[in-house]
Write a protein that binds this DNA or RNA. Structure first.
Lengths: 185, 185
DNA sequence: GCGCCCATGTAACTAGTTACATGATTCA
DNA sequence: TGAATCATGTAACTAGTTACATGGGCGC
C-alpha cells in the first residue's frame, strides 16, 4: 500500500470550517490543533495549488486596500467527497520516535543530573501545555465561540486527548525524577 | 539549526549493549523498544557503512558453516565520544501527527458509528500493547535477563512511559466512546 | 527606527517508507 | 512443500524541515 498524503486531507478538512487562505491555515496549525497536527507553509501552499488544479478546491482573490492580496480557498463537492472517503478509512497509527526515551535508554553513560534536567524540562512542557488547554477551554465556554466550529463536540474530544496525554506524561516525569534521584548509587 | 541525524545515534547507542549486526538491530527496533523508536533496514545498513567509513564503528565478519556471513559491528572510542556529546544535548520534542484525532476533528461529516469503530480499534491496540508490556516485565523479573542491559533501571523507565501513555489513551478511548454514544442526537 | 503581523511563495535538503532483490536453512 | 527465520542490501519514492526571498502596514 502506498503512503497516503495526509497533508491533502488536513487541508481539505480545514476548509470544512469555511473558506480560508494558506496563511489562515497555518494559524490553525500553530494554534489550538497544534497538539495533534501541524503543517508548514512549504506544505500548504504547493498543496493548495495542486488541489485547485485537480478541482478539489476553488480559489478566490480578495483585495483589501493597503493589504496583500488574499488567496481564499473553498472546498468543492468533489473535494468534500474525497475527504469523506478518506475519513471513513481506519486511522493509521504513527510510528513513535521519542528522543527523550532514546536518550534515557542509553542514559547509563551520562551523569544522572543531566537526565534529570531533561525529564524536568519535559515536565515543564507538560505543565505549560496543560495551562494552554485550560485557557482554550475557558475561552471556548465563556465566549461561546464553539459556534465557529461545526462540531464543538469533536473539538472537545481532541482537547481531552491532549489532557489525558500530557497528564500521563507529567506524572511519569515526576515518578522518573524520583527514581533517578532516589536510586542514586 | 540543521536537523540532527538521530538514526546515527540510535545505532551507536544500541552498540553500547554489545557488538551486533544490522539484523540484530532491526530485531531490537521491532522488539521491546519499538514503542519509542524504530528504524528500518534501509536506514540501518547504509548508516552502518557510513559510520564505519568515518571510524565510529568497526566491522568484523563472522562466518558460521551453513549460515550467511554476519557483519558484526562494534562501537569505537570516537563513536562513544560522539554519542556521549549527543546524549548531553536537550531532547527534541517530536511534532505530533495523530491521524485518529485529525479524523475525529472533522468527524461531524461522517456517521458516528464509523468514529466509534476507530476509537474502539485504538482501545484494542492499547490493551494489546499493555499486555505485551506485562509480558516483557514478567520475563525480565523472572529470568533475571536485566543483566543483559547495562542499565536495567533506564529500561524500566522507558517501559513505564509506555504504560502511562497507553493507560491514558485507553481511558480517553472509553470516555470518548461514551461521549459519542451518549451524545447521540 | 525596530520589530511584529500580514501574506505569499520557492529551493535545497534530510529523513523516512515501501518495494524490490537474493538465497540458504530449519521446522512443521 | 511451504512458511518462517537468518541475513544482506538497493532503488524509488514520499514526506517533512529549514532557509531563503519579498514587501507593505501598524504600533511603540
Amino acid at each position: 500500500m502506498p503512503k497516503i498524503n495526509r497533508t491533502k486531507y488536513a487541508i481539505l478538512g480545514l476548509l470544512l470550517l469555511g473558506p480560508m487562505s494558506g496563511y489562515d491555515m497555518k494559524k490553525r496549525f500553530t494554534g489550538s490543533i497544534s497538539h495533534f497536527w501541524n503543517e508548514n507553509y512549504s506544505g500548504i501552499y504547493p498543496m493548495l495549488r495542486r488541489l485547485q488544479k485537480v478541482g478539489l478546491v476553488k480559489k478566490n482573490e480578495e483585495r483589501t486596500a493597503g493589504k496583500p492580496v488574499r488567496h481564499v480557498y473553498t472546498i468543492t463537492e468533489e473535494g468534500r467527497k474525497q475527504l469523506y472517503e478518506w475519513l471513513l478509512l481506519p486511522a493509521e497509527r504513527p510510528t513513535l520516535r521519542i528522543e527523550l526515551l532514546l536518550k534515557l535508554f542509553f542514559g547509563h553513560i551520562v551523569p544522572e543530573e543531566n537526565l534529570i534536567e531533561k525529564v524536568e524540562a519535559e515536565k515543564r512542557f507538560c505543565d505549560q501545555t496543560l495551562e494552554t488547554f485550560k485557557g482554550i477551554e475557558e475561552h471556548l465556554s465563556s465566549t461561546g465561540s464553539h459556534k465557529e466550529l461545526p462540531g464543538a463536540k469533536f473539538w472537545l474530544i481532541t482537547l481531552s486527548y491532549g489532557k489525558h496525554y500530557y497528564d500521563a506524561v507529567r506524572s511519569w516525569c515526576e515518578e522518573t525524577v524520583d527514581i533517578l534521584r532516589g536510586g542514586k548509587k
